[in-house]
Design a protein around this nucleic acid. Structure first.
Lengths: 346, 346
DNA sequence: TTGAAAGCGGTACCAT
DNA sequence: ATGGTACCGCTTTCAA
């Protein structure tokens, strides 16, 4: 069932039917209702491709996700972000176009997206410091919202981020105030913008307490399970092992916990592990929202917000308006689950 | 730069340029080369929407993912499956549309997808026993590959699945042969096809060893962290607590481990936890591929295979050919990481 | 081997 | 308030 067919059955022109369905004011209410009912009865759905070819808008949003060629694994949290974004797209009648590309191909992916007219805008994931993609998208004229920020970028851009610095400041402060003196930081790759902010929060907490920052306790790498396992193991076996780990993501934390268990150490008693992923600490939330779940819900919410932001920008012409931004404050949910988080008494 | 523009610059007709670019044989090699070079030089990319409108094929595949309205969380493993599928689509020139819908809306999502001509085929995720979506897609004439299977469906359909039954048989047998007598099964929702198969493998292992199946040790629910935490806690606090847990997915396993840690029990010594997610056990793989990573890699591979299967089906007309299927044997990677997995000596 | 022209399924301008 | 028609960018007969 297409427009022509439907209009023939109604004895109307395609023009009128199109107008009726798309809410144009010049259609009489009687006609509109007739058309609406017929469309529903015949189960008519406009062909998206034809529609977007005619309007010039694709009614789709692209999410381009770089994956490391080295590890090929996707941050699992990403699925929740997409679920949140989907919700926004569904209500706005947009499709979600997903493009998972090896990181070295990413620039080409954006160029293609723009040239082929596949999407009306994109959400940019995993920004690094001075991320070149932001400028590229600007040049291409493709509206964009960055999930995260990119320090070093001068031009205005739209972003939604969590307060990584504050979150890690608070997490580190929490551990230090319990008496920990050797807190290791298992951070993300050095080029990642979030990693620099998290490190800075961690360092500030130490400095405010007059505790020297020990570079040996800070690690930067892609957040894999192997990385968490190897790094935690190395630190635990080395001189002056940490009594607590602050881990940037769930995945390396799984590895770190395994390293701890392998050494017969008790979680939360001999060694504490605090994991962050986006805006929530991996502490325990006493009752119904366990930590990982809480993180995931919040990421889902972030996806929803970012998508809405992008849709608004597109609705307003997509051009260079005032850049929008939103900073989600870190929420620290503290409890006692895998131990009291206190340092062991020597 | 579009076709018309490009052809004007070349002094050729759009027809010839189109033919040259799409590999039609009737174009002279000289012309073809000229066109190819010009296209590359001018960075020409055909407009996907126009192309698919003209050809009737959308050059896109849809992944429709049902999410529980209750929990709204997506199985994180899903991101890896998508990454694998993406790889197949990228090489074939296909796009990936993602549609994450509340489970009660799913039927409408499929109908829309088919009618609006958004995609040439879909991959169906999370099939239940006697899943009605398979028949629906058949009716709609939308080529489809099921990730998983659906017992109770008579008509032929295409699927790719792991050997859940055998995997859980082996995992349970492994624990029982170490001397465990009370092995709890934290399974997925009762309606899920994979859950029935996993349970059946688990039960067979018990029966073969003459150990009665205790229904109190078997739990079925959506695989959330809360579920794992609450269920494991309840069983540990109850009469005749299990000495081992066989958990169907990483997420509830995180909860279960937390319940164990909270009770001061040592992982792998007082209580063992074995997690499955798709075709790999959550045992430890000694060196460079830690368990969770191994699982994810294999899911990625499954995504790649499923996508290739679907693309072949579409290439062959998409119609009702001989249904294809592929059963991935479970791979059991055993090692000692969070303890020897032996039951505690009483 | 190349080109002209008629669609694909809509939208939107210009008439009426 | 409704209809005719020229596009949107590409493919595909059909003719030359």
């Amino acid at each position: 069932m297409n427009l022509k067919e439907l209009s023939r059955r109604l004895g109307l022109s395609p023009t009128t039917v199109s107008r009726a369905l798309n809410g144009y004011p010049e259609v009489s209410e009687r006609t509109r209702r007739r058309v609406r009912e017929a469309a529903a009865a015949w189960n008519y759905r406009p062909n998206t491709r034809a529609k977007s070819l005619a309007t010039g808008r694709s009614l789709a949003i692209g999410h381009v996700l770089p994956v490391s060629t080295k590890h090929e694994l996707v941050n699992p949290i990403f699925a929740d972000f997409l679920a949140g974004a989907s919700e926004a797209y569904a209500t706005a009648g947009y499709d979600l176009f997903l493009s998972i590309v090896p990181d070295q191909d990413e620039e080409r992916a954006y160029r293609d997206l723009a040239r082929r007219g596949t999407v009306d805008g994109v959400i940019l994931h995993g920004p690094s410091v001075s991320d070149s993609r932001i400028g590229l998208l600007n040049t291409l004229g493709l509206p964009c919202v960055v999930h995260g920020r990119s320090s070093g970028i001068d031009e205005g851009y739209n972003w939604l981020d969590v307060n990584n610095r504050r979150a890690f400041f608070r997490a580190a402060a929490f551990l230090l105030d319990l008496g920990h003196r050797r807190v290791a930081l298992l951070n993300g790759g050095e080029a990642m913008d979030f990693a620099t902010r998290r490190r800075s929060g961690y360092e500030q907490a130490l400095q405010e307490r007059g505790i020297p920052v020990d570079p040996a306790l800070i690690a930067h790498d892609e957040m894999t399970e192997t990385y968490g396992h190897a790094t935690a193991g190395r630190l635990l076996d080395g001189p002056g092992p940490p009594t607590a780990f602050l881990v940037s993501s769930l995945i390396p934390a799984i590895g770190a916990r395994r390293a701890i268990e392998e050494r017969g150490l008790r979680m939360g008693r001999d060694v504490s592990v605090v994991t962050f992923d986006d805006d929530l600490s991996y502490f325990r939330n006493a009752g119904d929202a366990p930590p990982f779940t809480a993180v995931r819900s919040s990421v889902r919410a972030a996806g929803l917000m970012a998508a809405k932001m992008l849709l608004e920008i597109i609705a307003q012409g997509g051009g260079a308006g005032v850049p929008r931004s939103r900073l989600l404050e870190a929420e620290l949910v503290v409890g006692q689950s895998t131990g009291p988080f206190r340092p062991p008494v020597r």
